[in-house]
Design a protein around this nucleic acid. Structure first.
Lengths: 349, 349
DNA sequence: CTGTTAGCGCCTTCAT
DNA sequence: ATGAAGGCGCTAACAG
């Protein structure tokens, strides 16, 4: 058996002995919390190097009450992780690492408040990042009275005094309308998410829809909305209903990725050219996912990486005792033109 | 300020005092490592409940040398996290959780061996999961002589005595050929990954290509391979070259997601119908990504979730002292028919 | 069945 | 500028 057994890690005591100093001096040399003579510092550093000393994370955490760990709470069973979610994770991980923190992935059902309470009580993590936040989210209360700092990606209805980062959904509709109106579209269809989601208070949905409708009315744009489940099939049906009701629609806004694919399929089958016959613009779909559709979709959406990064940074700010009364960030909508919108066809009445 | 301050967590000592027993008895009541009279157990449990006691993870880890944490080392900067990678993560997280372990996300450049060494020396994690394994992977040696148990997702060239899970790439080509041959295709194009990747020994590439070519030769199938970079543009060019060289191709195998999209675009522009005029089959693209293309692609690939799950389970097995000399797992290729392949058109000679 | 006693490896307040 | 000593909260022998 050439299998190497666990080599014993050098401990602070070993370093102290070898350098001929006390253990605490070694600690101070490490943290720089108090002045050390250059000479002893060198001896210590050399000892550390030859011993390959690395402070033990557990002991450090236990003694200092600082684990350097953050939890990223992500919901399981919901609608599963999608690509955008993943952008958060990656960006948050990187941002946390820059500040010396590691991210722990914690799969947790939103309703499972009991184990969340237990999890934070364990004292493993210093702070928590929450994904897939609901309008009324039971996890918030648990975290709040556990005293653990946390930051939401998304927000609750009642989040004035919470730390969060979110997309500024209220701007999506107006931005889309301006873009389409500039191209001459005045009769626009929308394939949005299911009514169930909206009625459940799903933030992106409710925050987007009203400003869109309000502005359309003021601008005199005709809007026809269809709510569809998040399936390709539902998208096909929605598109068919939409075009039956409003044959003169010249542009389509989608806020429902799978349904949009369905609409694309039907349009393709009917020989509708995009953007010559119909302009398409889609909301909130991640860059990569959107590149997959043929043709690629012009998009107004959220920069997942920015959100993830900001979330981690805000959380760390809280940990470092940032006393700003409020730490909240709304990302500007991200417009990516992939050529699926164009001038409105003429002669549509 | 109604802001709740960190409530002091009850400690084992508190429980012991309240229950009128010694501290160690509390521990034993928790772990069940030694018999406790029903009566004292009840007193203890009640005390725990009223105090809301939860064992401190750090202290537990320090004393027992078991943190309950696993690291998932994922490479940054490479080609970025894609959706399939994410399936590993999600599945591994879930599987680890079932065994009582948490997954720590550790972004780490493959070459950054120094910080990897440091990371494991910290003693934070009990084991490591490695993603994006290279044919020659410097991280393996570091882990091996750190004595930290680890499991690869993928494998190195020299992995006889390593613990790993990987797809059985050698079967992909044959499976694809059989499928296409059954439909009457004997002149097949391949848009594969860049030669750079292959020359660097990228496992999925090299392990797939040779068996594919070998079997094609034996079956008398004409294969024309184009290597393209992972971009849509490169895919367009590859497809154009391919069809210029071999106008009689009736089927196309893609092993390069973005390039495949490019090929699809060109095909669409030329009015080539799939699968009537051209059958398409794609390798190793994740389910979700594949559903995004229009038309959807028939795929031979890997079940990312299975891999992630197995990886976590194998690692935990190692941690639990599973002495099986070898723990290695190859997943069967996963064939998903999405209708992009069909009978070869006639009269192509 | 239960209690006592060392640690685990490090941080930190007190001394000097 | 440096040491000594007392925890942090828990595990795991060692004693009854």
């Amino acid at each position: 058996m050439s299998s190497t057994k666990k080599p014993k890690q050098a401990t602070r005591a070993d370093v102290a002995k070898m350098a001929g100093v006390s253990e605490s001096t070694v600690s101070y040399a490490l943290t720089g919390v108090r002045p050390i003579s250059d000479e002893t510092r060198e001896r210590i550093e050399e000892a550390m190097k030859t011993l390959g000393y690395v402070p033990n994370a557990m002991a450090q955490a236990l003694a200092s009450k600082k684990s350097g760990l953050l939890a990223l709470l992500f919901p399981v069973g919901e609608r599963g992780f999608d690509e955008t979610d993943f952008e958060y994770v990656e960006a948050a991980t990187a941002a946390a690492a820059e500040d010396g923190y590691q991210l722990l992935l914690w799969p947790n059902a939103v309703e499972d408040v009991a184990s969340l309470r237990k999890i934070v009580a364990q004292g493993l993590v210093e702070g928590v990042l929450l994904m897939e936040v609901r309008a009324q989210d039971p996890r918030v209360e648990v975290l709040r009275d556990s005293g653990t700092p946390f930051c939401l990606i998304g927000r609750t209805d009642d989040s004035q005094d919470l730390t969060f980062v979110d997309a500024d959904f209220s701007q999506w509709g107006p931005m889309a309308l301006h873009h389409l109106l500039d191209l001459g579209h005045t009769n626009i269809g929308v394939i949005s998410m299911s009514s169930d989601l909206l009625e459940a208070g799903y933030g992106p949905g409710v925050r987007t829809e009203k400003p869109l409708l309000d502005l359309a009315k003021r601008l005199g744009i005709t809007i026809t909305i269809k709510h569809a489940k998040a399936t390709i099939r539902a998208g096909r049906e929605a598109f068919e209903e939409l075009t039956a009701e409003q044959p003169d629609i010249t542009a389509l806004i989608g806020f429902n990725e799978p349904a949009l694919i369905g609409a694309l399929e039907v349009a393709g089958a009917r020989g509708i050219n995009i953007p010559e016959d119909l302009s398409m613009l889609s909301f909130g779909i991640s860059d990569e996912a959107e590149n997959m559709t043929v043709p690629a979709q012009t998009t107004i959406g959220v920069d997942g990486r920015e959100l993830g990064r900001m979330a981690a940074q805000y959380l760390v700010a809280r940990l470092n005792g940032d006393k700003k009364s409020v730490l909240q960030y709304l990302t500007q909508p991200q417009f990516v033109d992939r050529g699926s919108t164009g001038l409105a066809p003429l002669g549509q009445k």
